[in-house]
């Protein structure tokens, strides 16, 4: 069986759920080989083994974390030269897409980004034009490089005991020209990651700037909080939580849009959610064309009452 490289997405050795999804997908295409960049590979090992990594290649060169994405792309190129993978899978976030872009140029290979499904072939599925079309594609040249969106697969365990192989990479000076000079970690909210959450409650213009009812309802459901562009542009909620064309594209099991009219920019980011619920004062709001369940009413009245009832039922 051929090797399929999976770039591990982790935070100090804590493996993100997206990596389990990538490993699950990699098993459809061949034998998953995990590439781990940075410190903490021993901490990550159990999770990588649980989802079927047959081998873990560890890269610890300090240049890899000090500089931006260019060194990581160089490192992957060197790993690919040795392993000769049949495909390379990377998480579809900002950093992952840039690494993939550079790697595609280096390896003279085709690139597909934002896959929502990958099957043997590999044949990828993408959701395009605000979710109005589904496109199936394949890569016809070089080593297929695919970035995969969160929730593209349900992680399936397949216990292995992978060996860790230290791998030395050489980073060119040319790759070290853009550097991170300062980094302020974002305050933890205790809520699930927006792109990975099973349930998302989002607020828009209709909140009038008060996200209290949105956050309370989200917490009663164990959900992540999102915001429309109108709410972000008004300075009511941070940009990192924006759902839509210029923010995050999400596809949760349940999406609750409160006080959001449903402009194309917003729909582009949430239209593929499995179940959609909306609360809006305006019965003509376009968001109601998408919903499975809609309430025409004031979110400041509907959400607090619903929060109370949900909390009661859960306790």
């Amino acid at each position: 069986m051929s090797n399929v490289l999976v770039l591990v997405d982790h935070s100090a050795g804590t493996v993100r759920k997206t990596t389990a999804e990538l490993l699950t997908i990699a098993r459809r295409l061949g034998e998953p080989v995990a590439v781990f960049i940075g410190d903490g590979v021993q901490d990550a090992l159990p999770a990588l083994g649980q989802y079927g990594a047959t081998k873990v290649i560890a890269l610890t060169n300090p240049d890899l974390s000090q500089y931006l994405v260019a060194p990581k792309a160089e490192a992957l190129q060197q790993v690919a030269a040795k392993i000769e993978p049949s495909a390379i899978l990377i998480s579809s976030n900002a950093e992952g897409k840039e690494i993939a872009a550079r790697l595609a140029v280096k390896l003279d290979s085709g690139l597909i980004t934002d896959a929502v499904d990958v099957q043997a072939g590999p044949v990828t599925t993408q959701s395009v034009f605000a979710g109005n079309f589904t496109v199936q594609s394949k890569i016809t040249h070089g080593t297929p490089i695919i970035t995969v969106k969160p929730n593209a697969a349900t992680p399936e365990a397949a216990e292995t005991s992978p060996e860790v192989e230290e791998f030395d990479v050489t980073i060119s000076d040319a790759a070290k020209t853009a550097r991170i000079t300062d980094s302020k970690p974002r305050e933890a909210t205790g809520r699930p990651e927006l792109t990975e959450a099973a349930i998302i409650v989002s607020g828009g213009r209709g909140t009038g700037g008060d996200f209290g009812p949105i956050e309370a309802f989200a917490d009663s459901l164990g959900a992540a909080v999102g915001a429309s562009r109108a709410a972000v542009d008004s300075g009511w909620y941070p940009h990192a939580y924006q759902v839509g064309q210029t923010g995050k594209t999400v596809s949760p099991q349940l999406y609750v849009a409160a006080g959001i009219s449903g402009a194309i920019q917003h729909r582009a980011g949430m239209q593929t959610s499995k179940t959609i619920v909306a609360v809006n004062k305006d019965p003509e709001a376009p968001i109601f064309e998408l919903v499975d369940f809609g309430v025409v009413g004031d979110l400041h009245k509907v959400l607090p009452t619903a929060t109370e009832e949900v909390t009661k039922r859960k306790s």
Binding site: P283, V295, R313
Partner: peptide
């Protein structure tokens, strides 16, 4: 097309839950 209800005296929240 989904179900759309109009909130009257808390009926919206009840329907939603």
């Amino acid at each position: 097309a989904g179900t759309i209800v109009t909130d009257e005296d808390g009926s919206g929240a009840a329907g939603l839950v």
